[in-house]
């Protein structure tokens, strides 16, 4: 067993665990996007950043790829981590504003503006589909191509790959392929409906009357929150 300190707690981890796995074991929440059980960690989305070490030597590492060490000091929610995480969400939001997963992350972590040029590229290069294809579906039909700002995920020569069996695993796992819910202001870059809206049915019933699993978050039966405290101004 490896002893380390996480958020001030002494924890024990098994040899070969990553920081993320240890945190999950102890119930500490670290947000992730490009990490999925059953796929190899990639460290691409940088949402799972944690701070290791202390004082001026403290540095940010992606917890999904960092193996635990004896005596490691990990802090999962420092000011630096939260700021960096918000920045990563903002950057991803500017690339793929139509993704429900990223919009939900923005609402969850209070990202209310996008200061970057919105690019609508519908791919954040998280590599989930590439790993899904290669590791779970044994396909190897898609992969990264080019580099820099031309980097993209595609099949060889951009034609249908002979390896592809049309299993749909890549679309199933893609965070950008899940379209955002059509909230009251669906055309603005940041939705934030989860922050500013509440369902109306609770005025008349004790239980939510929503058939959608998302409990009134789709934005069809909601109104702005009465108490103006959590009002968030959307940027057009």
């Amino acid at each position: 067993m490896i002893n380390l300190i996480m958020n001030g707690l002494e924890v024990k981890a098994e040899e070969g665990w990553t920081i993320l796995e240890t945190a999950k074991f102890y119930g500490l929440e670290i947000p992730t996007l490009c990490y999925k059980d059953g796929l190899s960690p990639y460290g691409g989305c940088r949402l799972c950043l944690v701070e290791i070490g202390e004082g001026p030597k403290a540095k940010l590492v992606s917890s999904c790829t960092y193996p635990v060490e004896e005596g490691l000091i990990v802090r999962t929610d420092t000011k630096r981590v939260i700021e960096t995480r918000k920045m990563m969400i903002e950057l991803m939001l500017s690339i793929a504003p139509n993704s429900k997963v990223i919009q939900d992350l923005a609402s969850k972590f209070g990202v209310t503006q996008v200061r970057f040029k919105v690019r609508n590229e519908e791919c954040i290069l998280c590599g989930l589909c590439v790993r899904m294809c290669a590791e779970q579906m044994d396909g190897r039909a898609i992969g990264f191509q080019n580099r820099g700002f031309k980097r993209k995920i595609s099949t060889p020569f951009d034609i249908r790959s002979e390896e592809c069996r049309l299993c749909g695993g890549c679309i199933y796992i893609c965070p950008a392929c899940q379209l955002r819910c059509q909230g009251p202001e669906a055309d603005t870059a940041v939705c934030n409906a989860c922050l500013t809206m509440e369902p109306t049915c609770l005025d008349h019933y004790d239980d939510l009357q929503c058939w959608m699993y998302d409990a009134g978050r789709c934005g069809t039966c909601v109104r702005e929150k009465k108490d103006g405290k959590e009002q968030v101004s959307n940027t057009k």
Binding site: R140, A141, T155, P156, F157, S161
Partner: peptide, 25 residues
């Protein structure tokens, strides 16, 4: 040429997509 890369993939056992990834990088 595309066909050449396919032959390389068959003879070396490297998946075609990995070869294309290197070639476009």
């Amino acid at each position: 040429p595309q066909d050449a890369l396919r032959i390389v993939s068959e003879t070396t056992g490297i998946p075609l997509i990995d070869i294309v990834g290197v070639a476009t990088f």
